[in-house]
Design a binder for these strands. Structure first.
Lengths: 229, 229
DNA sequence: GCAAAAGTGTTTTGTCTACACCCATGA
DNA sequence: TCATGGGTGTAGACAAAACACTTTTGC
């Protein structure tokens, strides 16, 4: 086989940068780390790494997320290829950005310390290196758009969640208040949530019923006709 | 500056593959070429090339499109990064796919001959190399989705076009017939088309008025609230 | 005068929006 | 008993969908 055919072409470094979203019940947050290498060492940065010769780009993204968070089986999606020739002063690095949705309490504080990581509210992110600010902006827009048609919001919530929690999440993502009655009606009308007998009693006297997302029921509708919000 | 920091990481070949759409008045088509290099020489393939060290990825895509079609200022958009480690038997090549929309009659037959290129109806594309079939499928889905919110359909039509032509285009993209009255009402209600005095007389006795897309009028609406279909 | 495509309105249906009160409970 | 957040229904506005006939003109 003829790698020979390609040998006159340039080879580039291909990086992964990952915007990791979390939701604490009130705020939509992003996870940032203090960069460990030059250039821009100790500056805030997205989690990232390099793609290896022997792995697929998507697998590299999964690997890097796993190395840095200990998590696997996470919802991840390609975001955009950032490819300006001078985007990284350390070399010719093309970056594939991904966004990931994790349940915020699964990312433990030990790991936060190990990697010098911190959650920031999306409206209060610090100065970040290179084009990472643009990546975050784009990721947020993509999340807003995606969450309106696809059942990915649940990735940010515990397996059991209440309708008020779910509404808070959508309000945080869209940065706009929603009408409680319209919201519940619409979500429940999709028929993809299972109501549990159990109530969440922390945040109110009355307590709110838990629900779970029913993937099987969703699959049946998936023929694209689903509008979440 | 410390490219040194990155030097232990693998360098990969980064290719561009471009799905070029055209519309002949009836059918949505894709442009394919006979591949000029091994492996898989002489097989049908998308237009492609490699990103150079010194250029941005987006510019590379523009350059490659220009080299192969002679066209510039073309609507192009990143599609997806295809990064399986074994996707190309000729080497470790990651491909950024793009889709482009061109006016079909601007791609001349000389160029078709030069590059061994051919238009294929999207439903009748030949066997193509590597993962290019997947790329085409994804591009088509993305086009369908994008064209519903963004005024990019016009990129596939001559500057002057008739409403029946525009409707044919949408019908071809969505592979579904549309109601003529509802279609015209909706499109015209957006207030982004200018009606000309002139008629197109080829395709009917009566003749159909020409319209032009008015970019300035569109810009005023662009605050995302636009639904084309 | 007829074939072939362009142009044009109205009614029905469904979806989205706005809006306010009672309920359950722990303190 | 009261403060707090959870839960529920209806009416009006608006947008989408269904549907058929008249107009123009080259042959």
């Amino acid at each position: 086989m003829s790698i020979i055919q390609y040998k006159n072409n340039d080879r580039l470094l291909l990086a992964i940068d990952c915007i990791i979203f979390g939701f604490d019940g009130r705020y939509l947050k992003g996870l940032f780390v203090k960069r460990q290498i030059e250039p821009q060492k100790d500056k805030w940065s997205l989690m990232g790494g390099f793609v290896k010769e022997t792995e697929s780009v998507n697998n590299a993204a999964g690997r890097i997320l796993n190395e840095l968070t200990g998590l696997s089986n996470i919802y991840m999606e390609q975001l955009f290829c950032f490819g300006d020739a001078d985007r990284d002063p350390g070399g010719r690095v093309v970056s594939m950005s991904y966004f990931a949705l994790i349940k915020i309490d699964e990312y433990t504080s030990e790991l936060m310390n190990t990697h010098n990581a911190r959650w920031f509210e999306l409206n209060k992110i610090p100065k970040v290196i290179f084009d990472h600010k643009q990546m975050v902006k784009l990721a947020k827009e993509r999340l807003q758009q995606k969450v309106s048609n696809h059942p990915i919001g649940f990735e940010l919530l515990p397996d059991k969640f209440t309708l008020p929690q779910l509404q808070n999440l959508y309000e945080a993502i869209y940065e706009t208040p929603l009408d409680k009655r319209n919201f519940t009606r619409k979500i429940l009308s999709l028929g993809i949530l299972n109501k549990l007998k159990e109530k969440e009693k922390e945040s109110s006297r009355k307590g709110a019923f838990y629900y779970m997302f029913d993937k099987a029921k969703y699959k049946k509708l998936e023929n694209e006709g689903v509008r979440f919000i």
